[in-house]
Simulated assay, not measured.
Amino acid sequence: MASKRGRLDQFIARRLQVSKKAVRQLLIDNKVSVDGKYAKTPDLLIDEFSHIVCNEVVLQQYQKQYYMLNKPDGVVSATIDDKHPTALSLLLGVEHDMLHIAGRLDLHSTGLLLITNDAKWSAALMAPNNKVDKHYIVTLANPIDERYIDAFANGMYFEYENITTLPATLTILSSHQARVSLCEGKYHQIKRMFGRFRNPVVGLHRESIGEIVLDNTLLPGEFRSLTKAEIDCVIQQ
């Protein structure tokens, strides 16, 4: 989801159905304020979170929203779905306008899901160049051993996309469970990597994305707003 940047005069002309000449006169007469200050130039760049008032009427006042959800099994990482409950449907009491998911999880995967209306923030979080680590607890159908560690660290070639995965860290937790850390998210990547060993993934739970760790007080299906520290840990260019 791209950030909606544009010129102030174009926004007001479209919003009020007036000419740009009329908008310029409003600016001259100090009738327009953006984020609490009188706007003077028609080409001032605004975005979807600029607070815009014209003739004491609020034209736009969206607030940035950031949530973490403990996604349960059987919920889709989508805004709309005809067959399954969606992640957004679990955010009760929240205005859903412009909300989107930063880093999806499969239908049967569980754990940390981040939901926001700030496209710049989510783009920075998911940008391949930023190499933000994602940490998962993976439960396997069959026992795992030391061979997996080197295979994940060396990367795996996926013929269909003609790519080799970046190095990933695998830590064995028990005979059938491992923690996997990686900084990319190819299609069904973790399942496909374990598939090289013909070892089906029977459980996939995301613990964290970068410095944002799933709040262990949240039960499956529960959510909370991110803290300022959690929001600020995402470095935007």
Rank of each mutant, 00 (worst) to 15 (best):
P167F: 01
F158E: 04
P167C: 08
S175Y: 02
P167L: 03
A151V: 13
S174I: 09
L182V: 09
I172M: 08
Y160N: 15
A153S: 13
Y160V: 15
E159Y: 01
L170W: 03
T169C: 11
L182D: 03
A151W: 01
T169V: 13
C183S: 14
A151H: 09
S175I: 05
F152G: 02
N162Y: 00
T164C: 10
A178R: 07
P167V: 05
Y157R: 12
Y157F: 12
C183K: 14
S174H: 03
A151Y: 05
N154M: 07
F152K: 07
T169N: 11
R179E: 14
A178N: 06
F152L: 12
T165I: 04
M156L: 14
F158D: 09
L173Y: 00
E159Q: 13
Q177I: 06
N162P: 09
Q177E: 14
T165F: 02
T164F: 00
T171E: 15
F152W: 04
A153Y: 01
N154W: 00
L170F: 02
S181F: 00
A168V: 02
F158L: 10
Y157V: 07
Y157Q: 03
C183R: 15
Y157T: 01
T171W: 00
E161Q: 11
M156K: 11
T169Y: 04
A168T: 06
A153W: 00
S181M: 13
S175R: 12
N162D: 15
Q177H: 04
L173Q: 14
H176L: 11
T171F: 01
L166Q: 15
E161H: 02
A178F: 02
A151S: 09
H176W: 00
E161S: 15
F158T: 04
M156G: 08
E161M: 10
T171P: 09
S181D: 03
Y157S: 04
N162R: 11
V180N: 06
T165S: 13
H176N: 14
Y157D: 02
A168L: 09
E161K: 11
M156C: 09
A151I: 09
L166D: 01
V180D: 05
F158K: 09
N162C: 00
T165A: 08
L182H: 03
L166S: 12
A151C: 09
L170I: 07
I163F: 03
N154L: 07
N162E: 11
I163L: 12
Y160F: 10
L173V: 04
Q177F: 00
F158S: 07
T164G: 08
M156W: 02
T165E: 05
I172S: 06
L166H: 06
